[in-house]
């Protein structure tokens, strides 16, 4: 190591440390980028962007019972049961939110926008079984698609907010609603 090299080493160290310290000091004079979630979020600070793929919700009144979502889901977390017979009823619509990876493939497959993402992302519960979300309380008639209908200006999060609200409740075993079939057919459940 030559002597000039020796001096250059000292000079480089001093200069680069000096510059680095100027950079870090300049950041002391700036506003932090982080926010105090959840208690000090500024007004108008958009936490979740439009189009965020959060927890799924189903507007059962729009569901046609076509099972497209169930077939598309790569990991099979959607369970839709439709009763057989002349008059079809949707008797079960479950989504296992614990397994769902929010890929959004089901929402793209759905013809009526019945299944869609909300902006909800914080919904921790104390019992993992509560994360199986049941969207059907009583059998519903499938939606008849209208031709050239534009999707409703739906209010995403309507259903999920209820679920999030109820998460403190005790877990109760879910019973799929059975259907009274007018023409004497059987529900899936009765068959088993």
């Amino acid at each position: 190591m030559s002597f000039t090299n020796y001096l250059a080493n000292i000079r480089n160290s001093v200069v680069s440390i000096f510059e680095g310290m100027a950079v870090t000091f300049s950041w002391m004079l700036r506003r932090p980028h982080t926010v105090q979630y959840p208690d000090k979020v500024d007004k108008g600070h958009e936490l979740i962007k439009e189009g965020f793929r959060g927890i799924l919700e189903v507007d059962v009144s729009l569901c046609t019972g076509c099972l497209a979502c169930q077939r598309t889901c790569p990991i099979g977390v959607i369970l839709v049961e439709v009763s057989k017979g002349t008059e079809r009823y949707i008797t079960r619509f479950d989504i296992d939110a614990a397994k769902c990876m929010y890929c959004g493939l089901c929402t793209e497959a759905c013809p009526t926008n019945a299944i869609r993402h909300t902006k909800e992302f914080a919904y921790s519960v104390d019992d993992i079984r509560k994360l199986v979300l049941h969207y059907i309380k009583e059998p519903v008639k499938p939606y008849k698609p209208v031709k050239d209908a534009t999707p409703d200006n739906f209010n995403a999060g309507r259903f999920v907010s209820e679920i999030v609200k109820n998460r403190e409740k005790e877990y109760v075993e879910y019973e799929a609603p059975s259907v009274k079939i007018p023409d004497g057919g059987q529900t899936e459940k009765e068959k088993n």
Binding site: I17, E19, V23
Partner: peptide, 8 residues
């Protein structure tokens, strides 16, 4: 300035 040119 902060890190790439830092001598260390």
């Amino acid at each position: 300035r902060l890190i790439t040119n830092n001598e260390i």
